[in-house]
């Protein structure tokens, strides 16, 4: 199909969607304006729609009250490690469920899916006891990264993707004597790259925004991730709203960057022409 110029229908669509987009962007914009509002003004009535002049002050408060640069570095590191490890694990598991027949596959897969129904609050206490008390992993990256590594939703998602791969293609490689791991990494995984990227974003966000679990296992200031560090700005007697918003703005930027960077994978029709 040739691309056509937006017609009347498209105009109507844009007119409908534009206010929605604005509504969607509003909280983000308010986050920015609050980040530039002097702390004293926070108790004033009304909402600051324009930028204030206190960004530097708020930034100074943030640095004075929290080990913020260190916390951001911790967050970046743990989230990247988590995302990479989890993608490898969930996609390997999803691939096995999708492509191999083995004893107990159905039961095992049902168990994996069943874990989705267990509320996190039920898991978090035993998990804490295990990680902090039995394994003595408090204040380590491992404590943040390892427990959520096996992501059942990710396994399920990758299984669906790998099931859509033509079996013949993988069999063709088997006939040629290519090892299973190489088939996985050089044929199967590249072909589901767009979905893997989407999963990557979801996993990264999950780890990046995670507050409760890191709060529990990271008590030392130099081990804290950014959300935990920002949480410390909410004190009993006083809340540093401006500094909190500056921190939130800084935390939002890498997420935007990741999204923009990986977005092209959503669009790329990589599997086109695989099978007629």
């Amino acid at each position: 199909m040739t691309s056509r110029r937006p017609g009347r229908g498209a105009l109507g669509l844009h007119l409908t969607l534009a206010p929605l987009a604005l509504l969607w962007l509003m909280p983000l914009w308010l986050m920015v304006t609050y980040a530039t509002t002097p702390e004293a003004d926070f108790l004033q009535p009304g909402v600051p729609l324009g930028l204030g002049g206190a960004l530097a002050d708020n930034w100074a408060i943030l640095l004075a009250q929290t080990p913020f640069p260190r916390a951001i570095a911790n967050s970046v590191a743990t989230s990247l490690i988590y995302t990479a490890c989890s993608i490898v694990l969930t996609s390997l598991a999803g691939y096995a469920f999708a492509q191999f027949r083995f004893f107990g596959r159905g039961v095992l897969f049902a168990l994996v899916v069943a874990t989705l129904t267990v509320p996190y609050v039920v898991v978090v206490i035993p998990q804490f006891v295990l990680v902090a008390r039995d394994f003595h992993l408090s204040n380590t990256w491992a404590a943040v990264v390892v427990p959520p590594l096996f992501n059942s939703l990710g396994v399920f998602f990758m299984r669906q993707n790998f099931m859509a791969l033509p079996k013949d293609m993988l069999d063709a490689a088997r006939v040629e004597g290519v090892g299973e791991l190489r088939i996985f990494f050089q044929i199967a995984l590249p072909l589901v790259l767009p979905s893997t990227a989407a999963l990557g974003i979801i996993l990264f966000l999950q780890s990046w925004n995670n507050y409760l679990w890191p709060l529990l296992v990271l008590s030392r200031a130099d081990a804290q991730t950014a959300p935990v560090a920002l949480g410390a700005l909410v004190g009993l007697d006083r809340v540093h709203w401006g500094a909190l918003m500056v921190g939130a703005v800084v935390m939002t930027m890498p997420v935007l960057a990741v999204f923009v960077f990986l977005q092209r994978y959503f669009i790329a029709g990589i599997t086109a022409g695989a099978v007629k």
Binding site: G177, V178, Q186
Partner: peptide
Amino acid sequence: GIGMVFQSYALYPHMTVRGNMGFGLRAT
């Protein structure tokens, strides 16, 4: 000692013709 041709061709879509034909041999 067999070579197989599939109904769906089963070519690797992310590789060139050269890559498709050479992949198995190079990988082994």
